[in-house]
């Protein structure tokens, strides 16, 4: 299949001073094979991929002072690096501040990037962020030179505290991770956009369909991050491309300054000057 190519003039988005043209951030877990993952990334033209670093990757073994380096030669990581995309490592599955900070440090060593998608999970069934731990971990990591992409809720006060902790990007959830339910709280997401007009906002998690991603972009969000919706589709490559198209459509729709919805019909053809019969 042809890779997706944007139809519009360059419309880059900036995260921590780094410009990218694609507004789709793609997760790398759960694909049928690394080959299909690579093809999906190419088909979507995504420039940023998230990578989850499970701590069991041998890093915690006693006596290994440089766990990241011990992993660096391993095939899967090499394959990701070979894709030539920017890697946004994440702290998926971490439940405590300490765990998240340790994982972030490992990721920085392994991928040689200050970027970290910060997840501090509060509860297993909803994988809801523990926003208190999140703010604390964000503060620690920012102080340590990380550029933090926090996975958060649509709570405005939490967002404020994350910004105060040094975050320059916010990533509110659409719905629980992996649920595919779309944008559960459109009002909350819109008001977040309105409150933080200049902070790059990324809808992260819960997106199931291309139309969900298009809706987020129509709200004026800067990008969408997703994984399961593509990885677990019957044809991940086709779905990756579908999301890229939807995100472009939503973004263009937003930039085109859409009409306001109204309660009553408004004729789309002019009535003035029409001939009167009878």
């Amino acid at each position: 299949m042809d890779a997706y190519t944007p139809h519009t003039a360059a419309d880059p988005v900036e995260f921590y001073g780094t410009q990218v043209n694609s507004r789709l951030l793609l997760g790398t877990a759960q694909y049928p094979s690394p080959a299909i993952l690579a093809e999906a990334i190419r088909a979507s033209a995504a420039e940023i991929v998230t990578v989850s670093l499970r701590r069991e990757s041998g890093a915690a073994k006693a006596g290994q002072s440089e766990p990241g380096k011990a992993l660096a030669g391993q095939s899967f990581w090499q394959l990701i690096r070979d894709l030539g995309v920017k890697v946004l490592p994440n702290t998926a599955g971490c439940k405590t501040v300490k765990e998240a900070v340790t994982t972030a440090e490992m990721a920085r060593e392994l991928f040689d990037t200050p970027w970290i998608k910060l997840e501090v999970i509060g509860e297993d069934d909803t994988l809801q962020p523990d926003v208190f731990g999140l703010v604390e971990a964000a503060r620690i990591l920012t102080r340590d030179g990380f550029q933090v992409f926090p996975y958060t809720t649509d709570d405005l006060i939490v967002a404020d505290k994350l910004l105060a902790a040094g975050c320059e990007v916010l990533m509110p959830w659409g719905a629980p991770i992996g649920s595919g339910r779309g944008l559960n709280n459109p009002y909350g997401l819109r008001s977040m956009r309105a409150h933080f007009p200049r902070v790059p906002l990324v809808v992260d998690a819960g997106v199931g369909l291309p139309s969900h991603a298009a809706a987020a972009m129509e709200f004026g969000y800067d990008a969408v991050l997703l994984n399961t919706a593509v990885a677990k589709a019957g044809d991940p490559v086709k779905m990756a491309r579908a999301f890229a198209l939807a995100i472009e459509a939503g973004r263009e729709g937003f930039r085109a300054d859409p009409m306001e919805a109204r309660d009553m019909a408004a004729p789309s053809t002019p009535v003035m000057g029409q001939a009167h019969f009878g």
Binding site: P34, R54, E56, S57, Q74, S75, F76
Partner: peptide
Amino acid sequence: SIENDERGRVTGRS
């Protein structure tokens, strides 16, 4: 099923 080629060690989490 973990993308990792470390033999032998079974973790508590798994």
